[in-house]
Write a protein that binds this DNA or RNA. Structure first.
Lengths: 242, 242
DNA sequence: AAGCATAATTGGTATAGACAACTATATTGT
DNA sequence: ACAATATAGTTGTCTATACCAATTATGCTT
């Protein structure tokens, strides 16, 4: 475990990663106490405040917790998430041994209304691809998926590309690097469009999952809003202990 | 907006609350820029590092975001729960700077019906602790939580232990090691009990989150079924790209 | 008018030191 | 033997300063 003061990587970040690594390799076990801030400070010849910054970040990430007057300890229980299967419907169905298919409902360029413009970070009325698809498992409708993509950012989109792989097109053809994303899950009651396309009775509950996908430079390139039938689809998340 | 340097409340916390208040009262609107750190520092006669601590906390709570060389800005504040590292309602609320509380509805030993018996992997009619709690944020009911624990596996449970920390009891007193878990999220319409205890109108959607917790030897020791008000809760997941 | 260099402003990193609040342990007084 | 007190060690708060990095504003040159 080394600290390079001349590295362009901040010292606090180096220390942070170093401690995180010790926890993840189980050299620091849950409940173990860490060296005090002053010990770290003296050991590496860095300021105590710099040590604090590293530790505070790890506390915020729930790797550590601290008790005033006692010390800093490794968190007893750190659940982490396995997001496999939450990203792609097709992969998810495949993992369950089911036949997945999709039906294109519409593919067009629409002007962004104010809400969508804000979500995609494009000007109001700016051109946006709207792709509506029904996702089916064993030919039973499971979800209505609406994808919105800034037409100025991702150019030359066709139904074929969308049917194949949008990500492959963005990275392979357009040479843009895909970064991180965020997903929001909420419950609601199906609206008229969802009722009709998902073939469910009125007042049925739906799970709405909205994914925001970003490029490496943090520009948003895609909003995917999926409405799943709550009676047929449950989201499972594996929690693993760290 | 005042800062009292002699108050026992830390200065950074006073400033933090003061800015938060400006945002929540809409005197600072989403997208607005804040005074710079140096301006705050001079205005209140406090150190820039103290200002930073207040602002960094608000950035972590997603009230603000900052761009190097440009400034600090107000974000769209949304009530979203991050599922990553989700451990307890109390911790999540604390992370948002909100007052979390819980109200014990009932605590009893019941015989497992066939469904619960299967889920917990205990014999039918076997003794199971059932703990019902209302989770509140700022005294507003947010979720109904039902915890089921095999009474043969986890013995000597009391309301005090449950109120303190079940995990601490299992690992510390019973010397059993907690392993992994699974979480299932689904949408539904609130049933009568949920309507009443969550104080929501009929036909309201709810998000049901069911956690299954296992020991290291894979025995299931706990089923937690939480019903969240869909109007107040959104679950957010950060997606990392590998 | 356009382009470019420079300065000013902003947040980001890092240091050194001081005192407060809290915990655990050792010491002392009775 | 026990209780009170001192002490050393921990995290928490706060200050003052310095320099770096990214962005924006300004003024100069062409």
């Amino acid at each position: 475990m080394m600290i390079d003061k001349n590295s362009p990587i901040p010292i606090y970040h180096q220390l942070e990663e170093s401690i995180k690594q010790l926890i993840e390799s189980n050299q620091l076990k849950p409940g173990d106490s860490l060296p005090s801030e002053r010990e770290y400070s003296e050991k590496y010849g860095i300021s105590r405040m710099t040590v604090r910054q590293a530790i505070i970040n790890l506390v915020n990430e729930r790797y550590l917790y601290r008790i005033k007057g006692k010390g800093t300890f490794v968190t007893e229980q750190k659940f982490e998430q396995n997001l496999q299967g939450l990203t792609s419907f097709t992969e998810d169905m495949k993992a369950r041994g089911m036949k997945a298919s999709s039906k294109l409902v519409s593919f067009e360029i629409i002007p962004a209304d104010i809400k969508l413009a804000n979500q995609l970070n494009v000007p109001e009325h700016g051109p946006v691809y709207e792709i509506k698809r029904i996702r089916l498992a064993e030919d039973i409708p499971m979800a209505l998926e609406r994808t919105y993509i800034s037409a100025n950012l991702v150019q030359g989109l066709t139904t074929e590309i969308v049917q194949d792989s949008l990500y492959k097109y963005i990275e392979g053809t357009l040479h843009m690097n895909i970064g991180s994303g965020t997903q929001v899950i909420e419950a609601s009651i199906a609206n008229k469009e969802e009722l009709k396309l998902l073939e469910i009775p009125e007042l049925s509950p739906v799970m709405i999952m909205q994914r925001t996908s970003r490029l490496e430079d943090n520009r948003i390139f895609e909003i995917v809003k999926s409405s799943y039938r709550a009676d047929r689809y449950k989201f499972m998340i594996d929690l693993k202990r760290g």
